[in-house]
Amino acid sequence: MTRERKRLFAVGGLLGAGFATGLLVGLEPFGALTPPPWLVLLLVVAAVVVGFGVSLFWWRHLDEVAREAHKFAWYWGGSGGLALGLALVVFVDIGGLAPPLLEGSSVREVFVAGALSVMVAQVAGYAAAWAGWWWARR
């Protein structure tokens, strides 16, 4: 099997595992599918393990310049996004912001919304820092 075929197979497997896991987890609140919790946990753990394997394969095939761009972006962009998420938490906690989507929600839903907010802020910071790194070196 050629390197390109291995890469396509790995990415396809990762996308398939992510899609299947997301489908099971995402449709559960709508009552469409209600898999047992152990199955969801097993699929999520399998998707994470496969994701780390694909990421390791991808990282080993990057050149030094691309590696530096990603390290810079995760350090500065991810840290900036985390700081933004922390500021948002403090602002909500002191009563400066009452998110209308969270009123009347369960503790589980509020926790998930908070965790996703910080993750989105980190990824957005990463993307901005990564683009800035490449823009500065064009």
Rank of each mutant, 00 (worst) to 15 (best):
M1K: 09
M1E: 12
M1D: 10
R3Q: 12
R5K: 10
R7C: 12
R7N: 15
F9I: 11
A10S: 14
V11P: 07
G13P: 01
G16F: 02
A17C: 14
F19A: 15
F19E: 05
A20T: 13
A20C: 10
T21S: 07
T21V: 03
L24D: 00
L24V: 14
L24W: 01
G26N: 09
L27S: 09
L27T: 13
E28W: 10
E28N: 07
E28P: 00
P29G: 06
F30G: 13
F30T: 15
G31E: 06
G31T: 01
G31S: 03
A32I: 15
L33E: 00
P35F: 12
P36S: 13
W38C: 02
L39C: 03
L39S: 10
V40F: 05
L41Y: 07
V44D: 01
V45K: 00
A47W: 09
V48C: 08
V49N: 03
V50Q: 10
V50R: 06
V50S: 07
G51W: 00
F52Y: 06
G53L: 03
V54Y: 00
S55Y: 00
L56T: 15
F57C: 03
L62I: 04
L62P: 00
D63H: 14
E64M: 07
V65G: 07
V65H: 10
A69C: 04
H70N: 08
F72Q: 05
A73I: 02
A73V: 00
Y75H: 11
G77W: 00
G78I: 02
G78K: 01
S79E: 08
S79K: 06
G80L: 11
G81L: 01
L82S: 03
A83M: 11
L84T: 06
G85R: 04
A87T: 11
A87H: 04
L88Y: 11
L88K: 13
V89E: 07
V90Y: 06
F91V: 09
F91S: 04
V92H: 08
V92I: 15
I94Y: 14
G95H: 03
G96Q: 10
L97I: 13
L97K: 08
A98F: 14
A98I: 15
P99D: 14
P100L: 12
P100Q: 14
P100M: 13
L101H: 12
L101D: 13
L102W: 03
E103R: 05
G104K: 07
G104A: 13
S106Y: 09
E109A: 15
E109W: 12
A113T: 13
G114W: 00
G114L: 04
G114P: 04
L116C: 11
L116T: 13
S117I: 03
M119T: 07
M119G: 08
M119H: 02
A121C: 13
A121I: 03
A121N: 05
Q122H: 09
G125C: 01
A127H: 08
A127I: 10
A129G: 05
A131M: 11
G132D: 04
W133G: 02
W134R: 15
W134I: 06
W134P: 04
R138P: 03
